[in-house]
Design a protein around this nucleic acid. Structure first.
Lengths: 120, 120
DNA sequence: CGGAATCCCGTTTGATACTG
DNA sequence: CAGTATCAAACGGGATTCCG
């Protein structure tokens, strides 16, 4: 396989063809919906989120927050001081994810209800 | 960790703490929302889905369909005949995912709108 | 305190070949 | 037609260590 051209497209992740997938990618991480949920209740600091999420590593939280930031969902405010202080909050568009989370929440409850009803 | 009686279920690789995550896991695959979208328009066969999705491998499509089936979202009907014929359709609970997809779709459009305003 | 860098592992997906 | 089997790569995420 000499000189096989392996292209590293910047979009090599997943080519998103439809808006629904766009949203799914924005909130699809392991912790993102939880982070959004907590931020819906107000601004949080890095350490607060670490405690609230229970068990997330610093590296992973950093990455999830940066990805949410890149999606325009959260805002990252740096206070230059010692000790360092950072505040994370939802942007306007980020707060608009609430109906999405609610729709998902409702479906989950309905799904659990109907699976309790005899299926087998 | 509270409940240490973790079952080694093949399905649950991630412990789901809240309903929103439950939904996210059900539709969180690479192709699942697209499959659901196409099935919202009617019953499809395996080959039809392969063509509609454009680029999915047989192995992956099989797995995504089986996972959706395990979640109770789709129904798989086998017609014992030659050539073989399989029909996939949404269950009642599967059809109820439509509001979720719509909410996600709406958010994506709003997100794109606001990113046009601020950045580019 | 809030990361960045590095190493590592399990899961997901894809390519390919084969089968009932 | 609708899969299954096998291998390999891509990716996400955790643990640990170090740094401003």
């Amino acid at each position: 396989m000499a000189a096989s051209s392996v292209k590293h497209n910047k979009q090599s992740k997943k080519s998103v063809g439809c808006p629904v997938e766009f949203t799914l990618e924005a909130i699809g991480g392991r912790w993102k919906v939880l982070i959004i949920h907590h931020l819906l209740e107000g601004t949080k600091r890095f350490g607060e989120l670490t405690r609230l999420l229970g068990g997330i590593s610093a590296r992973t939280l950093t990455r999830q927050l940066r990805e949410l930031e890149a999606s325009g969902i959260i805002d990252r405010k740096v206070h230059q001081q010692v000790p360092p202080k950072l505040e994370y909050s939802l942007t306007t568009i980020g707060r608009k994810l609430e109906p999405v989370l609610l729709a998902m929440h409702d479906w989950a409850e309905e799904s659990l209800k109907s699976s309790r009803r005899s299926k087998k």
